[in-house]
Design a protein around this nucleic acid. Structure first.
Lengths: 226, 226
DNA sequence: GCTTCATGTGACCACCTGGTCATATCGCGC
DNA sequence: GCGCGATATGACCAGGTGGTCACATGAAGC
């Protein structure tokens, strides 16, 4: 859990202070876990440092020795969350490199669902910044995540085209948009209640999720037209 | 602006009090407009009645003569917003009834974009409940909206199948999911900054939006596979 | 003219927040 | 043993919130 690359945030301001990095690992994890729970549930604005203090058993003043302020705390957490997501996607991409485009798409969806079910808070933090313009650096953070997802999917798509599995006459931007939209939406529906009334994915067990993923990818493969 | 159907909320509690309904129309609109601005921007929890008071020029105590509490105020606003959306969708459906499935899909997307650009606050209120489980009656409200959208798209799809325009072997739930996902996502991307790095829809002018819609619907029609 | 009902007002209240800071303890080096 | 740096603590502060309520005004009915 060495996080030295985040000591200096993207704009040169400290997001985390040295005291935090010097903590014993179990104590550091306690702070991170309590903050993940609170920020993922409440979003940036409503998340309360007092709640994090109570849940972690750390004194209020100490939190300000670890991070300059609430914003710094949040940005550190977001960095942490994004790094976790990226690692996963890179692994999926490499592990499926020898398979065809549509299989890779299925594998990505499956890995995505597995990730959010194992790390609901990390996904929750991401969801909470989507529509809240008051999150510090929201546009920048979101753009970084979305850029990563688009690059990932764009790369899959180009490889699929090069191998003759995907039509080469596609407008790439729109195709990436569709893939991105469906991937993210599927994860949201699998994660958030009342979101999806067509499939009820948030209550679905693995076999059903897999079936739905196969159907979705098949529709993408063949289109809707008769 | 007679809103008598919402006097009694869905669970029998008053969401709006008679005094509000007796107000002169321009005063009522002032209250609604100030509340729309605040709830759409801040979401339920962060929205401040004090801000609405200041923006509308209505006394704080008077707000409590119009609605029992913040929750009632919000539920009334949500009802109002949903009714507006429904009217629009019903109109689009009827106006495109004689056209083929894919044209109707394009028309729906276009109408959706036009709506959110004309009523950004109504759309904003909807976006703010998606991932916030602390919104009063969130699941119920969201399910009602999503149900309406799914029924609308399901109906289009079944009509398209019946006319031989759409494959009849589609798993309907998954097809509706895809249409729903892409419609909503397109609107989000057209509405919210930094959301979409593939197409930058939030900055797009009408001709480009139309082009993107045509591309998207064409991909749906023909699929991705070579 | 008095009473009642309808409507309007904004100071006040208890509670919550992010952030501050005086105080305390421990370990290390000189 | 003393001083310094590192770390920990929680009461306190100013500002903000949703909601209350005593007071005020106007109109209508008797």
């Amino acid at each position: 859990m060495k996080q030295s690359p985040s000591l200096i945030g993207p704009s040169g301001e400290e997001t985390v202070l040295p005291t935090f990095l010097n903590l014993p690992p179990d104590k550091r994890e306690r702070v991170v876990e309590a903050a993940l729970v609170e920020f993922a549930d409440k979003g940036y604005q409503q998340a309360s440092l007092n709640t994090i203090v109570a849940a972690s058993g750390i004194a209020k003043g100490s939190i300000y020795q670890y991070f300059r302020d609430k914003k710094g705390f949040f940005l550190y957490l977001f960095d942490f969350a994004v790094a976790r997501v990226r690692r996963t996607l890179v692994q999926v991409k490499e592990a499926s490199a020898h398979q065809d485009f549509f299989t890779r798409l299925e594998k990505s969806l499956l890995a995505g669902v597995e990730f959010i079910r194992r790390h609901p808070r990390i996904y929750g933090i991401y969801l909470k910044i989507l529509f809240d313009r008051h999150v510090p650096r929201r546009d920048e953070l979101l753009r970084a995540v979305r850029r990563f997802a688009a690059d990932y999917l764009g790369s899959l798509l180009r490889q699929g085209m090069a191998r003759g599995e995907v039509r080469a006459d596609l407008p790439e931007g729109t195709a990436v948009f569709i893939l991105d939209a469906l991937l993210d939406r599927f994860l949201q529906a699998a994660s958030v209640p009342a979101f999806d009334v067509a499939l009820d994915l948030d209550r679905a067990a693995s076999p059903e999720l897999e079936q739905r993923i196969r159907e979705l990818v098949d529709i993408l493969r063949r289109g809707l037209a008769r």
